[in-house]
Amino acid sequence: MAARVRALETILVGKGLVDPAAIDAIVEAYETKIGPRNGAHVVATAWIDPDFAAWLKTDATAAIASLGYSGRQGEHMQAVFNTESVHNLVVCTLCSCYPWSVLGLPPVWYKSPPYRSRAVIDPRSVLAEFGLDLAVGTSIRVWDSTAELRYLVIPLRPAGSDDLDPRALAGLVTRDSMIGTGLPRSPGES
């Protein structure tokens, strides 16, 4: 595959259609700027600021853009809030739709057949494979991203995090907790 992709690049650059520096810039953006720290910032802000959380519920795209995150694969955002009784889980069974602007590029498991096939038919077992055993009575809501809406899970704020500053709070927010396959870390947990 490396040779096949290299040939495509050679041909397209040779025809003057592709600027290799643009590819470098795209890669750099997703390696260094556009990743799950963006989403963690959104979640921590929602935990701290009830007005922001309310905005996130009604117009997630605008609320998230106010923190500087917008654009490709985040044009139409929806924030879904976990509660004590409902746990949200996001999947794209038909391809690998994922909120790039806040989470970056999706992990391999998210794009692979085991997750895409099973999240909609047996979500509780899938969560157990991530080490997440939900309390009895917690129902699961699965969001299959079949259109252009992109979902960000807002997990419950961990107990004992009241005194943390925004930066430390964001540090508790894992990528998986914003997909629904995990929970945020507890304060003091590494």
Partner: peptide, 23 residues
């Protein structure tokens, strides 16, 4: 793929890099 069977367990990778190869 939704609901199709036989693909096995989900296998998350610890500390997964953004890319796995230069290509």
């Amino acid at each position: 793929l939704g609901g199709q069977m036989g693909f096995g367990l989900v296998t998350p990778e610890l500390d997964e890099p953004v890319f796995h190869a230069a290509w």
